[in-house]
Simulated scan of single mutants.
Amino acid sequence: MSSKDSATTTSGSGDIRRSLDLLWGTGERATRGPKPALTLDRIVEAAIELADREGIAAVSMRRLSTELGTGTMSLYRYVPGKAELLDLMLDKVQGEAVPEGEAVPGTWRGCVEGMARGHAALYRAHPWLLKVNHGRTVLGPSAMRSFEVVIAPLRTMGLSDPELLSVILTVQNWVTGHIRMEVDTVEATQETGMSDEEFWGSQQPFLERAMLSGDFPQMASLSEDTFSYEYDHFEFGLRRLVDGFAALVEERAASGDGGGRTSACEDE
């Protein structure tokens, strides 16, 4: 297996210029040879479908050629290898978080909530994203557009531009952590064949003895519904996150320090 067919899961780990050429459509296109039987979009879509079904580790140029019913070497006419393919996959799915033509809420509150729910939906639809190292993101059209559409509403917060970026990162990182817990729970069930109810039920006799021992009075005092699956921890956390941003917005508005941007008073 060549290095091009390696199981890399780090964005931006391939030929950055080639990834950017493919993302932005600036690369040279072949003008000779037989008419291509595939398209770059179809290859990327097939890779995403495979990753959705079997995880990102299952995606290789060899496996993808089998999925598409073509020779492995023919794929290299479109994309150099898996590292660059991964960059294209990431930008492609990023477009789902901000669908073309869909209005973004004009208030910063609506924008933050929309970002959080959109990011959560993206990771739930494509759990393999949690296995990818996003430390170095190659910025393609979808990634750029996702930033473009939220900047205007977020600027009504009256914060500096670095702070606006921090708002975006805070929301994304919080959502990623929450969804990771969801996905890990699902994967644990699939890998062990044991449901959550069975897993915690097997520990119940030991936990009951621990609670009766008197060594854990605070844990023993918790209500029976403390760990209920019905409680919406995502919405609770999102509300508190927005409330925290609102406190900063009000503080800046009261002090008159708006970071050089429009005051958020009109958004309150």
Rank of each mutant, 00 (worst) to 15 (best):
W174P: 00
V132F: 02
L164A: 02
T192V: 01
T26I: 09
L139N: 01
S166G: 06
M194N: 08
K4M: 09
E113V: 12
L22P: 06
K82W: 04
L165K: 08
E96I: 02
G258A: 10
R209I: 00
R62C: 05
L164R: 05
G95L: 12
D15E: 08
E230C: 07
P127R: 06
A103Q: 12
A143W: 12
S60K: 10
W24H: 15
M219Q: 15
K131C: 08
S74V: 12
A246K: 15
Q203M: 14
S223K: 13
R62V: 08
R124F: 04
L129R: 07
E191N: 09
E224T: 09
Q218N: 05
G25I: 08
M211N: 10
W108C: 09
R17V: 12
A46E: 00
A103P: 08
W200D: 08
P205R: 09
C111S: 12
C265V: 15
Q172G: 11
P105T: 05
L122C: 03
L20A: 12
L129C: 03
E28R: 15
V242N: 14
L20G: 07
V175Y: 04
T31G: 11
G69Q: 04
T170Y: 10
M89V: 12
E113C: 13
L248F: 11
T39W: 07
A152L: 14
P80H: 00
E163R: 15
L23E: 07
E208H: 13
G260K: 09
I43Q: 06
D21I: 06
H178L: 04
A247P: 06
A143G: 02
D15V: 01
W174R: 03
I179T: 07
D161G: 00
G106K: 10
G106S: 14
L86P: 09
G27M: 00
A253E: 13
E197H: 00
T170R: 11
D5N: 08
A46N: 09
S202I: 03
A253K: 11
G12F: 01
E197F: 01
I48F: 05
Y78A: 13
R209T: 01
T192M: 02
I48L: 04
L159H: 11
V79Q: 03
S6V: 08
A103G: 08
M181E: 06
A120P: 14
A247F: 14
K35N: 10
F245K: 00
E163L: 14
M89I: 05
W108S: 12
L238W: 05
V186N: 00
L169S: 15
G114R: 05
S19W: 01
I16Q: 08
R252L: 02
A97Y: 04
H134R: 07
L238C: 13
E182R: 14
R180C: 01
W24Y: 13
E28D: 15
A83C: 07
S19N: 04
T156R: 15
R18H: 05
D161E: 10
E268N: 09
D257M: 02
W108R: 10
L212R: 15
T170V: 03
L22Y: 05
H134P: 00
T9L: 02
Y231R: 15
E84L: 01
P217F: 00
P36R: 07
F216P: 01
E113K: 14
A57T: 14
E230I: 08
G81Q: 03
E250L: 14
S223Q: 13
G106H: 12
L164S: 06
F236R: 07
L241K: 07
A152T: 09
